[in-house]
Amino acid sequence: MSKLALGPLLYFWDREQVFDFYKKAAEWPVDVVYLGEVICSKRRALNREDWLELAAMLKQAGKEVVLSTLVLIEADSELRTMHHIADNDEYLVEANEMAAVQRVAGKKSFIAGPHLNCYNHESMALLNELGAKRWVMPVELGEETLQALIDRRPAEMEVEVFAYGRLPLAFSARCFTARAEGLPKDDCQLRCGDYAEGLLVESQDGQPFLDFNGIQTQSAATSNLIAAVPRMVEMGVDMIRLSPQHLSPNSVLMAQVVNAFAGVLNGSLSVADAEAAIEKVNGSTSLCNGFWYGEAGMDWQPGEIPETV
């Protein structure tokens, strides 16, 4: 049976908000929690000790804790931070670019993160030989390629799918939040912290299109693959990733998302009811699932809804 994973927090929330979020997450039915800053090295609301404290707390709560590395590394200081994460002896590491892979290759088992560009069986086999025990599918791939890769995966290579949350679509040297605020990146004043859900980018005719999260560009729509969960279980997907979102008192909204997915997985909730719960959490934010069906990622396919797993 597939398990649930909580992906790394992509937004810049306050230290207190982050601690509160993970205290709640410790009680949720998720098996794996990815931790750490993956977007911007200037975000230092939490220092290394804070993250390790959260890691210890979650491990204590029975979670598998994985420390994620920065997606785009440019400065030496960012390399050093990556080294600290990669060299830790206690927790698994999610490598999100090749310098991190180079650091851990042949030394320890690691997770090949969604930003590594592993699109085929030969790439997967190589990463597996170097120590990757789990592969997170790049978000622009869908069911067909997933099946082809599951058919050809090395023994004991786990597979994880990004199944919920605004899609991480692009990264840049430029900070788009700072640009929108009229500030240079070197004096960004950490304005991304003002946007707990990112900064909405709309087309001129009012269509929500993208979402700026510092140097990252996300989809404006929330990707929601809950209707595909039964199919994922059937295919043998090991891990279903939910991306933290919906900052709310006591994290009730994200808890509802987690419970919707958990309910479908354990058979206590129909897909239709789970989908309704997720729509309610998202309110006016639209949903998308096109990548799963091999279509434009922004598309929403209602599809056939299977009753349960």
């Binding site: 622009e140 692009a170 990264f171 840049s172 993208l210 434009a296 598309d299």
Partner: peptide
Amino acid sequence: CVMVEGRCYLSSYATGESPNT
């Protein structure tokens, strides 16, 4: 290219086709 090359899915998000795929 404004985004780091090889890891930009803006085009496939809008059209289903990207430089990578």
